[in-house]
Each structure stands twice: as structure tokens, then as C-alpha cells.
Nucleic acid binder design. Structure first.
Length: 420
RNA sequence: GGGGGAAUGUCCCGAGCGGCAAAGGGGGCGGACUGUAAAUCCGCUGGCUACGCCUUCGCAGGUUCGAGUCCUGCUUCCCCCA
């Protein structure tokens, strides 16, 4: 979209060569601000879950690059807007979250930013904001008179998020219809309060961001800018961050570090280069070398991707531990005691745990019925030996030298069962 | 306000003469082949103390030996008329 523009600022050069840019209201304008070190940008995050997942990582990385190249990033918690609900990209409205839930989610989400950004009082230091601060205090009539009058319903009806619902005959409630007004107002308010002049976000936010830019102009604010990142899908078309077993959460208490590492390790060949650019900070020539590895050698690139991406979020140590666990498990075929482990009491173990129950307990299968089916298909293994008798009990003889039993579903998912 | 239509396996779409644990897809999981990849092929895709038992077709009743299927009321959604 913007490939013919040749930016001069470190910020845009980096974003462009790494593939972060989908649309921008004014590349030249942003470039100038960035070069002058005057870029203050925010990205809003709705508090709909207790943790962000990989889907938000591109946005977080954009803020990280902004900070590294002399700009000031401002994460905005959607403490207010989450109470309303963003209709963008959703084909049906979701239920309203309670205030308690939103508050709890907010606390969970906040944590992750400290790992990617430097907070403080300095010029490029990040600080946290929450739109509940100003949205919560709004008076309806005042808001309508001061802000609402600048919105054209005609234009709002033409926006993708609205049009989609109307075309499919799906309900769009009035409260959701107001979402874009509030987000637009956020942009203006953040400019007033903190001099923020750029809003970034995923491509699904383009309409909302532009609306805010426009509102700023109508309300006499200085020029505001919009920049969005492409919506990420894997090469086979799946949405990023969603796997069968659930979303790839960023918070460690929602997803073990090992699983996070594994997610990156299992990247499709065709995605390796793109992901290295977006989710690591390796130099570009190194990335070009890695993505051109042929055949099985590309696995080396995947390991580096996993290490780098995991280290950024969970620290170098956590990444190395995960890599080590994976190496033992997949390459050396030895038992890694660092695999995710669940514990049972000695007494419970001695009393005899049924095969089916053990796998359910380990969380590898959701029900004994599923365990039965997997056994029939040869999908369950105990200490790497396929289970054939669903009625067998785990015995003392199943314990390895380390005093654990390794339960596996398929080739990739392993859990240790440990009597304590 | 009047008339017509729709709701199905809690991932989604979607068939379903009164005998149905309910066709077919998609997705997902597992197996084979590989490189912890993709593509391809095969199997599975309600629960359980399991040759049997239990719970499912918007909700609540009714008819029937038997109801997703018929009747009544209700809820929600869509379409046409006013």
C-alpha cells in the first residue's frame, strides 16, 4: 500500500521494512513528526479477557519500535469503552461485561506492557492511561452538544463495522453504535491531555481511528495521524493466536512458557520470514538469511524465532528452558523433567489410577469418552508406548527413574504425572 | 397493529415420512507420510461406574406404546403489509 513512499525517519523505515504498515493517513506527516522526535502515539486495548493474546502482539511491537526510535508510546486501557463494546469485526454483539470483570481483566492485561516498554517520566518513556478516567465522567447532554454534533449518522452508517451488521440483518444495538464516538473522543481527549498525535491499531480499527482524526479537526485540535497494521493470518489462512486448545495468551499464568515457545516453533514454513520481522528484533540481513534456509534447515530458523519471541515476553532464561525441554523431548527423545507437570498424592497413585482418568486429569483430553476414542486411534501414550488397554491401571512399574509418568497425546503434547 | 417464516448435536453451517444419539459439510483432534512444516490419504468428532445407562433438536405443556418431527401457549429473530 505504501511501498513507493521512502520514509526518512528510523521509525517508519523500521515499520515499513518489517511489514507493520497497512494503512496510514499521511505517511509524510508521520515521517516528519517522527524525525523531529515529536511522535506521541497511543494504542487502545479493550479489557475483554484477563490477558492479551498473540493477536495484540503486532500492536505492542509497534509501540516498542516507536520507543526505540525516539517516540513516546502510550498504552490505553479501554476501561470505559469495554463497558460499551466494540462492534468492529464482530458479526454479533457480545454480552456486556460486568464492571468487576472489566477491572480484573484490566489488571491482567496491564502486566504485559512492562515487558515490552520502558515506563517512567522521561521523554520517550511510556505511561499507562485508561479511558474510564474521562469517559466515566461524561454527561450525556454535554457530550451530545460538544462532541455528538460533529458526527454524521449518514457517514457512520457507511462504516464497515456498521454496514456489515446491516447487510447481514444482524442486530447492532445503540450502545455499540456509540462505540466509535467514544473512541474518537478518546483520541481528542488524549491529544488535549497528553499531546498525543498518532493513533495506531489493527486494520479493523481504521474506521474508528479515522473518525477520531476527523473529530480532532472539527474540534480544533492540531493535526492527528492514523496508522494501522495488517490483520495477521497464517499462510494457511487461520487467524493468528487461536489454536484448538485456545488462544495463545501472553500472560504466563494463562499459558505456560513452554507452550508459548512451542507455538512459535510450529510456525508454518511460509510464515517464518514474516514472523521474524514482526515478532523479533533480529537485524534484517540475519532475517533474510534465516528465511532462505531450504528444506529441513528452516527448522533452525523456527527455533530462533521461538527463542527470540519467547525471550522478549518471558525473558531469556524462560526461553532457554523451553528450548531445552523441547530439545530433550523431540530431538534426544529423553524425558525432560521440565515438561508441564501435574501432581497426585502417593496414596491416590497407589490405589490405582485408571488409564482414562489419568489422561483426563492431565488435561490432555476433555472426557473419558474422548480418551477412549484417542486410544482407538493410537493417539495416547504412556512413557512413549501407545496405550492399548483402556482399562489398565497406572502401576508403580510405570514410574520412570525420575518418579514420574509421561503421558502424551499425539506427538507434541506431553504432561508428566507425578505422585507426591 | 395484521400476515408469513425461522430456531437442530453448546465451535460453525446445515438435512431431518412419528422409532434418532439424529444425514452431509466446514473446523478441530488423532493416525500414516514428513522436517515438531505444508500438501495428501485414513480414522474420530454427546456424557458415564459402558455389550448397558443417562442427557440432547429455542422454552413450557399436551397427543402417542413412542416426538426433533403432530397440537397449544410462550420467548427471540427475520420478511411483507399498516
Amino acid at each position: 500500500m505504501s511501498n513507493d513512499f521512502r520514509p526518512k525517519s528510523d521509525f517508519l523505515v523500521t515499520l515499513q521494512e518489517r511489514g507493520y504498515i497497512h494503512q496510514c493517513s499521511d505517511l509524510a506527516g508521520v515521517d516528519e513528526k517522527a524525525k523531529a522526535g515529536e511522535l506521541v502515539a497511543y494504542i487502545g486495548f479493550d479489557c475483554t479477557a484477563p490477558s492479551l493474546h498473540i493477536g495484540s502482539l503486532v500492536q505492542i511491537m509497534m509501540m516498542r519500535w516507536l520507543q526505540k526510535t525516539g517516540g513516546k508510546p502510550v498504552p490505553l486501557m479501554g476501561g470505559g469503552t469495554t463497558q460499551v463494546g466494540d462492534p468492529s469485526g464482530k458479526d454479533e454483539s457480545r454480552k456486556l461485561l460486568s464492571l468487576d470483570q472489566i477491572g480484573a481483566n484490566k489488571e491482567g492485561i496491564k502486566q504485559v506492557f512492562a515487558k515490552f516498554l520502558t515506563f517512567g517520566e522521561g521523554k520517550t518513556d511510556a505511561f499507562m492511561t485508561d479511558n474510564a478516567e474521562w469517559l466515566g465522567a461524561l454527561k450525556y447532554i454535554d457530550f451530545l452538544r460538544e462532541v455528538g454534533r460533529h458526527f454524521s449518522v449518514n457517514r457512520m452508517m457507511a462504516m464497515d463495522s456498521v454496514k456489515m451488521r446491516l447487510e447481514r440483518d444482524q442486530e447492532l444495538s445503540f450502545i455499540e453504535f456509540n462505540y466509535m464516538c467514544l473512541q474518537a473522543y478518546d483520541f481528542v481527549e488524549l491529544n488535549r491531555r497528553h499531546g498525543i498525535n498518532l493513533q495506531m491499531g489493527g486494520s479493523d480499527q481504521w474506521g474508528n481511528i479515522i473518525t477520531g482524526m476527523d473529530l480532532g479537526r472539527r474540534m480544533g485540535r492540531p493535526q492527528l495521524y492514523a496508522l494501522t497494521s495488517p490483520l495477521l493470518t497464517t499462510a494457511s489462512g487461520a487467524k493468528m493466536g487461536k489454536t484448538a486448545s485456545g488462544a495463545i495468551w501472553l500472560n504466563a499464568d494463562m499459558l505456560p512458557v513452554y507452550d508459548y515457545w512451542q507455538y512459535w516453533r510450529n510456525t508454518e514454513d511460509a510464515d517464518v520470514g514474516r514472523f521474524l520481522r514482526l515478532f523479533t528484533e533480529l537485524p534484517m540481513d540475519e532475517i533474510r538469511r534465516l528465511e532462505n534456509l531450504g528444506g529441513a534447515e528452516i527448522n533452525e530458523a523456527k527455533k530462533i524465532l521461538a527463542n527470540e519471541a519467547t525471550a522478549m515476553l518471558h525473558g531469556r532464561e524462560g526461553a532457554e528452558a523451553a528450548a531445552d525441554t523441547a530439545r530433550k523431548t523431540f530431538e534426544e527423545g529423553v524425558l525432560a523433567s521440565s515438561l508441564p507437570t501435574i501432581e497426585v498424592t502417593q496414596a491416590e497413585y497407589a490405589a490405582g489410577i485408571g488409564m482414562l482418568t489419568a489422561f483426563v486429569k492431565a488435561g490432555l483430553v476433555p472426557s473419558t469418552g474422548e480418551a477412549r476414542r484417542q486410544i482407538k486411534g493410537g493417539g495416547l501414550r504412556v512413557n512413549d508406548v501407545a496405550v492399548s488397554d483402556e482399562r489398565a491401571l497406572l502401576a508403580a512399574s510405570d514410574l520412570t527413574a525420575e518418579g514420574v509418568v509421561k503421558l502424551s497425546l499425539g506427538k507434541k503434547k506431553h504432561i508428566l504425572l507425578k505422585p507426591v
